[in-house]
Design a protein around this nucleic acid. Structure first.
Length: 155
DNA sequence: GCCAACGTTGGC
DNA sequence: GCCAACGTTGGC
């Protein structure tokens, strides 16, 4: 089992939205580095859910991978914002995963706290100018995040 | 709303 | 294949 961080703008799709939906396809990622991480994900992997472009930004809870290697259907839809004219059903370019809700932290871990606790080398999300929306989280970092959130690690 | 960072596009 | 222009992300 691996750990990852996924970003979402809460006014677009928040952790509460995922809680309401239960499971949702993580579509719309159009960055190759992020896609390559999505391709590496396996069922059961843990996802730290990060709210970006909000005050304050930070990790608000946990989700999990419920299905791996899912073809993102929005790439084929000419009407869709995430349409990719170079993708075909025979040769899709964008794979993703389905994510399931796990839990919401009693108190979020703000970006300020993340910067106080982790170096940019340890955790890319605190790197200045970082725009990657999917990134791996090292196991020791994940354990320290659990401690910061007062989360017992079971879900 | 500003702007730094940085990925992508397209002309050459 | 280089690189300037452009668009987007996302913190502040």
């Amino acid at each position: 089992m691996k750990y990852w961080l996924i970003k979402s703008e809460p006014h677009d799709y928040s952790l509460a939205d995922l809680q309401a939906d239960g499971v949702e396809i993580w579509d719309g990622v159009r960055n190759y580095q992020a896609r390559n991480f999505l391709r590496e994900m396996a069922v059961g992997d843990r996802l730290f859910y990060y709210h970006s472009n909000t005050k304050p930004p930070g990790i608000v809870g946990l989700a999990k991978v419920t299905q791996a290697n899912v073809v993102d259907p929005t790439q084929f839809d000419a009407e869709h914002k995430y349409f990719d004219p170079k993708a075909t059903p025979e040769k899709p370019r964008w794979q993703t995963v389905k994510v399931g809700y796990t839990s919401t932290f009693a108190t979020m871990i703000t970006l300020t706290q993340l910067k106080e606790n982790f170096t940019p080398d340890e955790f890319a999300v605190v790197r200045r100018g970082n725009r990657l929306s999917v990134m791996p989280v090292a196991e020791d970092v994940a354990k320290r995040l659990y401690a910061l959130a007062d989360y017992d690690g079971t879900a």
